[in-house]
Design a binder for these strands. Structure first.
Length: 351
DNA sequence: AAACCGGGGAA
DNA sequence: TTCCCAGGTTT
């Protein structure tokens, strides 16, 4: 109990941000916040958290929700499996624990969408259980403090840092300890250009002493982005448009989109229109081309989407919409769309 | 072990 | 551009 990491505690008490999920010990609220904050900055997730807990203040209200509604609240935040898993886990809790959030680490860890990090975070912060939460911040702080060069995105790295974090854990106040370490990484020991001159741990930091701060943590990168070409059709009847629910195992699963024609490579809008795959399918006769946007890029973690929007006007949308959903324009905002599509609606004042 | 799953902010 | 963010699941 006399490790130098403890000098972080007074730092934490002084510098910690005043965040809504720090005002509660409700495991449900802690869990929701941890899920929203996965791979997401506090500033980005905060408004989503506020809206989410207003709509679903407890496990049972979430468990009773419809997935479309939950995804709508998640719209624009990304990594939508988090929302689907959150709902599934809430239903697990209703079924298996009578709606009461489980208080054992092993039970928490079994919930959908809850991995090692989230289970440890919820167990320690909400129940004061002695589990070390190791997130991106903790990897960075520990790799620098101890000068560890093992790549953090390898099994060996995960094991090493998990073990070290477990040894360092303050077992009396694991929740505070975990948050102190993470907050320190988020505010002081930042990825780029950290202010080491004003760091409370500078005299203990192996990376600082050996001038390796900007090299740590080490991460093997594998990321390769593939390109995809999306042609979205805004097919507008009188006050109505067609949309479609993505259901395959692909990006944006269970979100809505406009009728889409994906091509293998870069294709001109003329070719798309001449191929006439979509229009005959819908048996639309009189179609007027309103506007075709230039190709725009949308970057995802592992895909680069090249998208264009083709705006067509017709007198009347068909009765048989071949799997597409006919909706009123004023109802567009009721559905969850990928950011790319939502942005298009906004540009054209459809929402 | 590697691939897959978003979107935004910072440098 | 590239990197990273209170990661997890699937193959």
């Amino acid at each position: 109990m006399s490790h130098f990491i403890e000098s972080l505690y007074p730092w934490y008490l002084r510098h910690r941000r005043d965040l809504p999920w720090r005002k509660t010990t409700d495991p449900y609220l802690i869990w929701v916040s941890e899920t929203i904050l996965q791979q997401t900055r506090v500033g980005q997730g905060l408004p989503y958290y506020e809206r989410f807990i207003l709509s679903y203040p407890d496990v049972v209200s979430l468990a009773r929700a419809h997935e479309d509604e939950v995804l709508k609240l998640w719209e624009g935040l990304g990594y939508y499996s988090r929302a689907r898993n959150l709902l599934a886990a809430a239903r697990q809790i209703l079924q298996n624990f009578n709606g009461k959030f489980p208080s054992a680490y092993s039970d928490i860890r079994k919930l959908k969408g809850v991995g090692d990090y989230t289970a440890a975070a919820v167990a320690s912060i909400a129940f004061n259980l002695p589990y070390a939460a190791v997130d991106g911040n903790v990897y960075r702080v520990l790799s620098r403090c101890y000068g560890l060069e093992t790549p953090i995105n390898t099994p060996a790295g995960k094991k090493l840092f998990a073990q070290l974090a477990e040894e360092l854990l303050n077992r009396r106040e694991p929740g505070m300890h975990n948050q102190a370490l993470m907050e320190f990484g988020a505010l002081q020991c930042v990825p780029k250009n950290p202010d080491c001159e004003n760091c409370p741990l500078v005299n203990h930091c192996a990376a600082f002493l050996t001038k390796q701060v900007d090299r740590l943590p080490v991460k093997n990168r594998t990321l390769q982005r593939s390109s995809r070409y999306f042609n979205f059709f805004l097919i507008e009847g009188v006050g109505q448009i067609l949309i479609h629910k993505r259901q395959k195992n692909d990006i944006w699963k269970n979100l809505y989109q406009l009728p889409l024609e994906e091509t293998a490579g870069e294709t001109s809008a003329e070719e798309i229109l001449q191929s006439q795959l979509l229009i005959p399918l819908l048996n639309i006769e009189t179609v007027k081309i309103q506007k075709i946007t230039p190709l725009r890029t949308h970057e995802l973690t592992h895909q680069r989407i090249f998208a264009r929007f083709i705006h067509l006007q017709t007198d009347q949308l068909p009765e048989n919409t071949a799997g597409f959903i006919k909706i009123n324009k004023k109802d567009i905002s009721k559905f969850a769309f990928p950011g790319l599509v939502k942005k298009y609606f906004e540009e054209n004042h459809l929402i």
